[in-house]
C-alpha cells in the first residue's frame, strides 16, 4: 500500500507540471482553435532563460523565475505577431503546422547556440529525501506541486473574474460578436499567446530541477496536450484535472503493469476514455455556434 501512495505522489508531481503546460494548450486553443505544438519548446526555453539568469548572471531565484516567465510570454506574443497573425485567415491546419515549424526552429536554435551541453538546474530547496509514514518526499517536489497548483488556480481565477479574462472567453465563443461589443480581437490573441507561452515557460522553470536541461527536454510538453484531451479540451478545470490524472495513470501503469510500457498504457487509457466520452472526462459537449 505504501508503494501505491508513493506512486500516486510521484504522479501528482508530474501531473502538476503537465497541468501548467496543458492549461497553456487549452487557453490558446479556446481563443484561436489552434493547438500550439511549440508549447514543449516554450517550456524548454523557460528553463533555459531561468538557467541563464540564475546560474550565469546570479540573479535571485524568484527574479530568475519571473524574468523567464515574462520573457516566454513576450516571446509568445511576438511569435503570434510575426508567425501566426499573418496566417489568421488560412485554414487552422496551416496554423498548427506553423507552430510545429516554430517549435523545430526553437529547438534547432538552442542546439546551435549551446551545442550538446547538458545542464542541471540547481535545486533551490533540498532534494534530500525525508520519510513520513513510509512515504518518501523531498522539499523540492513538494514545493513544485505547491507552486504549480497555485499558478493554475491563479490563472483559472484570472479567466473567470477579470475583464480581460472575460474578453478572452467572449472571443473564443464568437469572434465577430466580440468584435462588435468592442473587444479587440487582435489584442486578445496577443494576450492569449502570451499567457499560453508564459504558462509553458513556468512549467519549464519548475520542471528544470527534476530533469536535466537539454534542447530536447521539451518533448515532455506533449503530455500536457494529452492530459488536456483526457480531461476535456474545452473545459479549463477539466483539462487541469486530466493532466493530474495522466501523471498518476502513467506512474501506476509503469509500476503495476510494465515500466517500459507506461506511455502505451497512458495512450490506451486515453483512447478508451475518448471512446466512451468523446469530449474528455470532464469536457462539455460543444454545439456549433453561428
Amino acid at each position: 500500500m505504501e508503494l501505491f501512495f508513493q506512486v500516486v505522489i510521484s504522479g501528482i508531481t508530474l501531473g502538476s507540471l503537465y497541468s501548467l503546460v496543458g492549461l497553456g494548450f487549452v487557453v490558446i486553443y479556446r481563443a484561436t482553435k489552434v493547438v500550439n505544438f511549440a508549447q514543449g519548446e516554450m517550456m524548454m526555453l523557460g528553463a533555459m532563460f531561468a538557467l541563464y539568469f540564475y546560474s550565469d548572471l546570479g540573479a535571485p531565484y524568484f527574479a530568475a523565475f519571473l524574468l523567464a516567465v515574462l520573457l516566454c510570454g513576450t516571446f509568445g506574443a511576438a511569435l503570434e505577431r510575426v508567425a501566426y497573425r499573418p496566417l489568421l485567415n488560412a485554414p487552422v491546419v496551416t496554423l498548427i503546422l506553423a507552430t510545429v515549424a516554430v517549435g523545430q526552429m526553437m529547438r534547432a536554435a538552442v542546439r546551435i547556440l549551446r551545442g550538446s551541453e547538458v545542464s542541471r538546474f540547481p535545486s533551490i530547496l533540498s532534494a534530500e529525501p525525508f520519510v513520513i509514514a513510509g512515504l518518501t518526499f523531498t522539499p523540492l517536489s513538494l514545493s513544485i506541486i505547491t507552486i504549480a497548483i497555485l499558478l493554475v488556480c491563479a490563472f483559472m481565477l484570472f479567466f473567470r473574474k477579470t475583464r480581460i479574462g472575460k474578453g478572452m472567453e467572449a472571443t473564443s465563443e464568437n469572434r465577430d460578436a466580440a468584435l462588435l461589443v468592442g473587444i479587440s480581437v487582435n489584442q486578445t490573441f496577443s494576450l492569449v499567446w502570451a499567457i499560453g507561452s508564459a504558462l509553458a515557460g513556468a512549467a519549464g522553470v519548475l520542471l528544470a530541477p527534476l530533469i536535466i536541461i537539454t534542447p530536447e527536454m521539451g518533448s515532455i510538453g506533449i503530455k500536457g496536450f494529452i492530459g488536456a484531451i483526457l480531461g476535456g479540451f474545452n473545459s479549463i478545470p477539466g483539462a487541469v484535472a486530466g493532466c493530474f490524472l495522466l501523471g498518476v495513470i502513467e506512474n501506476l501503469g509503469g509500476v503495476y503493469i510494465a515500466s517500459s510500457m507506461k506511455d502505451v498504457i497512458a495512450f490506451c487509457v486515453l483512447v478508451l476514455i475518448l471512446t466512451i466520452k468523446p469530449h474528455g472526462l470532464f469536457g462539455r459537449k460543444e454545439g456549433k455556434r453561428a
Binding site: 508503494l3 508513493q6 506512486v7 510521484s10 508530474l14 527534476l210 530533469i211 527536454m217 518533448s219 515532455i220 502513467e250 506512474n251 501503469g253 509503469g254 509500476v255 515500466s259 507506461k262
Partner: peptide, 8 residues
C-alpha cells in the same frame, strides 16, 4: 525523462 516508475 521520468524514471520514477522504474526506480520505485
Amino acid at each position: 525523462q521520468d524514471f520514477t516508475a522504474q526506480l520505485l
